[in-house]
């Protein structure tokens, strides 16, 4: 690890910390309380970027899968796995914050409304992606299997989205469309801060996870070499 990359990493984490503090400040102290739901609505600021992060993560998983199949460099497999793990993490955030919001807002813990349902299905898809490794014997086998599963999974995402949308009513908070329940303009700055924070968080977590995976792989490589020599 070079000095510049170390410095960069430090800068990244510092920026992330600062951004998080700014975002938290923004969410709890700056953003106005929502007219109908009150403070509970603030959960949206975590919910929405997590959902976006989810989709982004799975796009990365698919891309990493394609890249692996084309080049056979294991680093792409590490990227895919890291992105999938972070994606599942963000999905989990959505699935947990959803009910926390739903309970005071609608009186139920869970509802099979479109976005929550879609997120749950995505969660299932990518947890199954992560489980492939339990059933394969070698790194290359897992990487190949995971790449195929990741590509299929991502192809499934729009299909899941559309089918669930057709099946159910709308998500209560929609913006960009002429529907009630949108965001008031003074909420937008907070949204942007949170979005930026989550993007940075995504990059930081994926980067961290990749370096852990790379170290794990390097260790098992060394073990392999030692046993070959013996």
């Amino acid at each position: 690890m070079t000095a510049t990359s170390q410095a960069l990493k430090l800068a990244l984490w510092a920026a992330l910390t600062v951004l998080m503090l700014v975002a938290l400040h923004s969410v709890f102290l700056e953003a106005p309380a929502e007219r109908v739901m009150g403070d509970v609505q603030r959960i949206f600021y975590f919910h929405f970027p997590s959902a976006l992060g989810c989709f982004a993560a799975f796009a990365v998983v698919c891309g990493a899968g394609v890249a692996y199949l084309a080049t056979r460099h294991l680093r792409w497999d590490r990227l895919g796995r890291a992105a999938a793990e972070v994606g599942v993490l963000f999905c989990t955030i959505v699935l947990v914050t959803g009910p926390i919001w739903a309970r005071p807002a609608w009186g139920v813990w869970w509802t099979w409304e479109a976005r929550l349902t879609t997120t749950l299905v995505l969660w299932l898809l990518y947890v199954s992606y992560l489980m492939v490794g339990l059933y394969t014997d070698s790194r290359e086998q897992r990487a190949r299997a995971a790449a195929v599963v990741g590509i299929i999974g991502f192809l499934d995402v729009p299909v899941v989205y559309f089918s669930v949308q057709w099946w159910r009513g709308h998500h209560p908070v929609i913006f960009g469309r002429a529907q009630s329940g949108g965001l008031s303009p003074d909420m937008w700055p907070t949204v942007w801060w949170c979005l930026a924070t989550f993007v940075l968080l995504f990059v930081a977590l994926v980067g961290l996870r990749i370096s852990i995976a790379a170290t794990e792989d390097a260790i098992s490589d060394l073990e392999e070499r030692l046993s070959q020599r013996g």
Partner: peptide, 28 residues
């Protein structure tokens, strides 16, 4: 997916884990 699962140990479990979530929109 069966190509994958036929190669794996406990492959039948793997096939369930992989196929069913992806097939959800089909079932729907």
């Amino acid at each position: 997916f069966a190509t994958l699962s036929s190669r794996a140990r406990r492959g039948e479990v793997l096939l369930h884990l992989l196929l069913l979530p992806v097939a959800i929109p089909l079932i729907l």
